[in-house]
Write a protein that binds this DNA or RNA. Structure first.
Lengths: 119, 119
DNA sequence: GAGCGTTATGTTTCGGCGAATATAACGCTG
DNA sequence: CAGCGTTATATTCGCCGAAACATAACGCTC
């Protein structure tokens, strides 16, 4: 394949990976990062702000994930001590861990394919 | 992970794969199909029509690929016997073959990951 | 009970990308 | 030399998905 490319060896394999259900996307790289930041901040709105995403969009994503999973991945409540908050459920933490592992295997796949481009 | 999903086992790993250069995407599943159809029909406009794509978009894609490759992947000429036409160059045929192989490995990766979701 | 920051949800606005349209040139055929 | 189907390229139009905006409710604190 390297024979095909213009001089500099800056070509590489890249891609996107996700898990999808019958109706909708379930988990992808963006949703993963959102879950990670909800875990870190204890808040959907803080997580959204960190990612430069509107609260509404973040909430829609959380809603989609919770609707598709057998158990909700995120637990949230309005009002109270600091206005409310959100936390990852046990199921949410498990989903994060498993999709991180899947992402890691995908990164290795992409690295292998990039290597193969030049061998 | 299966513990997480709602009843029916309709969840699966899915994704997109492509080769990118320093400035732009070089080859993806859409560009691959376009090249295959150019090879089959001998025409950019026929290939575009088969894919429900405007000629302009198809031509832009061909132009992008030709610009990034050391040798053009598609040779085209206007006028003549049947108005003109386009064919895959030797480099184009090689690119198609190699990216098809990469796609096949990716399909296997996705199948493995989908299996893993339920094991 | 007023204030705060959050969750929760609907409505409106906007920008970018693809689609559609337009035009020219090419070179064989009849 | 008129006609055809194609390549080649610029410009305009339209739509849809994302972003922005708006509003309500919640429950703790002071």
């Amino acid at each position: 394949m390297h024979e095909l490319f213009a001089e500099n060896q800056a070509f590489r394999a890249n891609g996107r990976l996700w898990i999808e259900g019958p109706a909708d996307r379930f988990l992808g790289i963006g949703r993963l990062e959102l879950l990670e930041r909800i875990q870190a901040t204890g808040s959907i709105s803080k997580a959204a702000k960190e990612m430069g995403m509107s609260y509404k969009k973040a909430w829609d994503l959380v809603s989609s994930m919770n609707a598709q999973a057998r158990q909700p991945l995120v637990g949230a409540h309005a009002g109270g001590a600091h206005g409310g908050g959100a936390t990852l459920t046990e199921a949410g933490a498990a989903a994060v861990a498993e999709f991180q592992a899947m992402q890691a295997r995908f990164a290795q796949f992409l690295a292998d394919e990039t290597t193969r481009l030049y061998q």
